[in-house]
Design a protein around this nucleic acid. Sequence first.
RNA 1: GGAGGAUUAGCUCAGCGGGAGAGCGCUUGCCUUACAAGCAAGAUGUCACAAGUUCAAUCCUUGUAUCCUCCA
Length: 883
Amino acid sequence: MKAVELARNYDPKDFEERIYAEWKRKKEFGPSSSDKEHFSVVMPPPNVTGILHMGHALNNSLQDIIVRYHRMLGRPTLWVPGTDHAGIATQNVVERQLQKEGLRRQDLGREKFVERTWQVKEKHHDIIKKQLEKMGCSCDWDHERFTMDEGLSRAVREAFVTLYERGLIYKGKYLVNYCPKCGTALADDEVEYENVPGKLYDVRYPYADGSGFITVATTRPETMFGDVAVAVNPEDERYTSVVGKELLLPLTDRKIKIITDSFVDKEFGTGMVKITPAHDPNDWECGRRHNLEAINLLNPDGTLNENVPEKYRGMKAEEARKLVVEDLEKGGYLVKTTDHAHDVGHCYRCHTTVEPYLSEQWFVSMKTLADKALAAWRNGDIVFYPRRWENTYVHWMETIRDWCISRQLWWGHRIPVWYCQDCGKMIVSRENPDECPDCHSHNLKQDEDVLDTWFSSWLWPFSTLGWPDKTPDLEKFFPTNTLVSAYDIIFFWISRMIMASEEFLGKAPFRDIVITGLVRDIQGRKMSKSLGNGIDPIEVIDKYGADAMKFTLCYLAAQGQDVMIDMDSFRLGSRFANKIWNATRYLLMNIEGRNLVDIQRDKLSIMDRWIYSRFNAAAGEIASAMENYRFNEAAQTIYSFFWNDFCDWYIEASKGRLLHGSDEEKDLQVSILMDILEKSMRLMHPFLSFITEEIYQKLPNHKGDVICAEYPQFSAELEDKEADSLVSILQEAARLVRAARANLQIAPEKKLRVVIRIVADNAASAFMKEEASLLATFMSASSVTIDTEGKEDVKGALPATGIGFEAFIFVREAIDIDAEIKRLQNEIEKNEKLLEGSVKKLSNENFISHAKPEAVEKEKSKKAEFEDKIQKSKEHIELLKSF
RNA sequence: GGAGGAUUAGCUCAGCGGGAGAGCGCUUGCCUUACAAGCAAGAUGUCACAAGUUCAAUCCUUGUAUCCUCCA
């Protein structure tokens, strides 16, 4: 064979882009036609508003690892990519653009506005796709979907109409969360609460009969014009006598009554609260219980409407509040003002204060859907990793409220409802109707509102596969296997997907739900635009490469824990990739003139058997880590196998044979090295996709592309406990001598004679004899003698104790005997403590009788080991004293 | 108010009832014919606190403290 030359430095820029293009060209990302069981994943669709952040990088890295792993297991594997139209968010982006041009969306009109939004969508979509490609995501671009493309829009209509037909969608006038800035209703969970300082105003409401007044406490005096009652707790004895009396609403000439309702907190303020059904959710419920009118005070833009006295009309709430307070004060109604922090809802998109707003909206009735979704969990059809998220899921499902799905936006799926302008008939239809079924009028008008974004994303796992049609994709790849998502959208998305899937297809959309943590900065803060503490995945890739990014994230992503990182964190992955590159570079230099030969097991040395055993163990650990979505464990296994076992020990050990062996030995050695290297590339590919592919292609023993190569499997037969334990003795011996040398600061070039005393004729001594020259290399010794009979003269040698052997290092000069004796005494002390623990355990009859027999056996051998070490150390001190 | 999480080395964090771990950082020595982005050796711990269960607790249970997140 000819040597293969690798660039001197690992530079991912040399090949990452090229390899991705190559994979795409060869259609490696599509599902194979194998008849094994399918494996499918749908990508949580990023919003087309922005670019991908570190959270996406984490999420997609983990998906890519899972997908590549299963692809290599030979299963027909499909990873569906796509993007979400992100209603409010995208509309806001476009509106901000318009604002810069001095325009409002109304100036453009609906059609033009939507057209323009499509352009923004296209632009961002292209950026997102490029980013995913740069990350190396092996998703099947032929299956790419967008929540507003034709098929998915049809799915949305199907879902809406079906739910309507099943009586699960209704329209009604309700108090909803309303963002005046976005001009639309929001779902309950689209509101973010924040504790802000405010004021509590105590206001006098006089009795209508002039017999005095009562005092109510409110944080929002400007809503008093919508008051329809004052409520007290029925058990509040202070007020029993006044219940039913009429009050005169200050600043107006309206009269309201005092009622009782148990929701009133006796301790809050005066224990009397004003009831404003149109502007507070609790009051709304209370108003419904008492059949009270709801007086809406707001225009859609958040200003006060004609239901307030003229002087306040057109004002924003905060503005009006000041004036109302002033007027109350002037009128002698204001008793006092106190500071009062309270939770205020904000729009999750623009952070404007959300107003409870009475309006006509569409709702999904959630109870029946939630029951099915809960049943799916109870049946074990869905499993969360980590499990604790199941509490969150169950709690949300059990306390679910109806979902407001209409949005007063232009960007989104228009609600498939039409109204006959002539007879008023409401038509809910899958197809655009031509005429009214009742009066045959053609004068139909579609509902102006669009649907909540999540109304399309909750169909994602099956709408992307062709539903409502019974497509072959749907047949084959649904239900999907694994969903990877951050915990912040369990409610928004994950729970609803399960409900939709159960409702429309009668099955859970996926079984395994992998909840990742959030990516935070090094101070633990959430990465955000406003803080400017975000890290751009593309910058990471430019600096360290996509492999380094993926591997680092994987290594740090312990089950569901938040990941704290900064730019430097990615050096971890980068250095590992560099190590792989250099090890390969070295190995490929050494194949010059060699031939690959059959690797027959009976020709393997213990060291050879050991590295195969370690490889096999690593494959086993990775399989179980992957099965349980313990990504960090898989990454650590790979790291320590390749770096510590393979590079630090095996390659180092092989150097001697490569230099001094016979041709036959050299050929065998090179063949084993290439074999392990080739297998390692396959083992590591899901985690470091680009570099393994680049290297794999250059290996003399590669077949095809690593992306679709077979994943190495653990096999119990390949476990080699004998080799494992023999090599660990060798390693311990090497470490002991190295440590002794380091302690004494003996320069590496000073080669010293070493005697290893193993007073036993067993596999260990035989192995040590066989590998004496290798030991000499590891110890930088001039020679290593294995003394099985205790006959070697070790006078003047520095002793060290291992498990089952002693090492004697012949150091005449440069040794500080006192320091060495001190070290040994410390050693004795340490071991005596350990021994004491062991003895205590073993003399405890309860331990002997209760503990597992293995544990007892282990304790016994530990005890013997400590005793031996203490004994040896004592002898060694004597020996040193005799110098 | 309810739920969940965290508390382990200087930092970031793994840890699966039985002699405390990794990466980074630090100290020391080495440019050993792949890698100084490297090699080798080392130092650093009341496993938050208190009780309990157990032959045995960093690990299980219950409290306490501090911090974080979500829900209301």
